[in-house]
């Protein structure tokens, strides 16, 4: 009897784990470009997520779009806003720090603080809430498990973003150029690729995806100046565990961490669950420092 109970309990946590995983995945997907592929430790990525969340807020509270379709407008708008913000940061600041990871970390940490303070000045320190569209109210009940529509929407959004990213990288001409530059800058340059322009495009995409993640976060919680900060460490961990720049690794790692978190939490509480997840990551990285996936070649190094 006890085993059955345990299994039922674990199953009940499955949707929770999947939805935590989907949020982690959205937050990490953009980092997969800027950190995983370009190697830029962008501590301001969390603040880009926050800017995306406030874009959804602005769409409803300031522009006055009705909540029934504001979400669908906010998604592309947030992508554009944070993408352009990321582009400006790359061109104006981060570009001059390439090859200096520690300086980049401090620089982007500072940028993050500036953005947080800006958000406080513009929107006020207290959290704001963004009403979810009415068609996301309620949920499905499948086999005794309650699945809120908002969580299902985030899951679908994450899947769509992964599919679009995979298609872009493997099928499009500029995605191919991006992979070439990431693998070997000099060789890309001698193949006639303007590597600086590709850097900028990579940063635009990574930052834009942070905006999409921000909009998704408004569906499951309040929006505040530190909204993104809560996700930044987890997002970095997902990219490292998955293997730098490996899309499928990022996907697997996000869901693995999400599920682990959800399975442990009912027994241990939220704080201890976090400890367990971090401990598991430390053990995993001891055994496999390169992450789940790497590019295999015949070269020995």
């Amino acid at each position: 009897m006890r085993t059955v109970d345990t299994i039922n309990q674990l199953l009940a946590q499955l949707p929770v784990g999947l939805s935590i995983g989907a949020v982690l995945l959205l937050a990490a997907l953009g980092l997969n470009f800027t950190f995983g592929q370009m190697g830029v430790i962008n501590m301001a990525h969390g603040e880009l997520i926050m800017v995306g969340a406030y874009t959804a807020f602005v769409a409803q509270a300031w522009v006055g779009l009705p909540s029934s379709y504001a979400l669908l407008v906010a998604l592309p708008a947030a992508f554009a806003v944070t993408g352009l913000l990321g582009l400006a940061l790359e061109a104006g600041l981060i570009r001059h720090f390439y090859g200096r990871p520690l300086d980049t970390l401090l620089l982007t940490f500072g940028i993050g603080l500036v953005l947080q303070q800006l958000a406080r000045d513009v929107f006020g320190a207290p959290n704001v809430s963004v009403p979810a569209p009415p068609w996301l109210a309620g949920g499905l009940t499948v086999a005794g498990m309650h699945l809120p529509y908002a969580r299902l929407f985030i899951l679908a959004l994450a899947a769509a973003c992964v599919a679009a990213t995979a298609y872009y990288l493997s099928r499009s001409r500029s995605g191919r150029r991006m992979r070439a530059v990431i693998h070997n800058r000099d060789l890309a340059a001698v193949s006639g690729i303007a590597v600086r322009r590709v850097d900028a495009a990579t940063f635009f995409l990574g930052s834009g995806l942070a905006g999409v993640a921000g909009v998704a976060l408004t569906l499951i919680g309040p929006t505040g100046p530190t909204t993104g900060t809560n996700y930044i460490v987890d997002a970095f961990l997902v990219v490292v565990v998955g293997g730098l720049g490996q899309l499928r690794g990022t996907v697997l790692a996000a869901f693995a961490l999400g599920l682990l978190n959800a399975m442990v939490e009912p027994w241990s509480g939220a704080s201890l669950a976090k400890v367990v997840v971090f401990a598991a990551i430390i053990v995993f990285l001891q055994l496999r420092p390169q992450g789940m996936f790497t590019v295999r070649t015949r070269a020995l190094t």
């Binding site: 191919r176 992979r179 070439a180 693998h183 060789l187 890309a188 193949s191 006639g192 070269a299």
Partner: peptide
Amino acid sequence: ETFAPLTVLENLKVAADG
């Protein structure tokens, strides 16, 4: 040197694009 994660055809396409 080649672009190791790209296929042979993609390696050529990268340089031939445009």
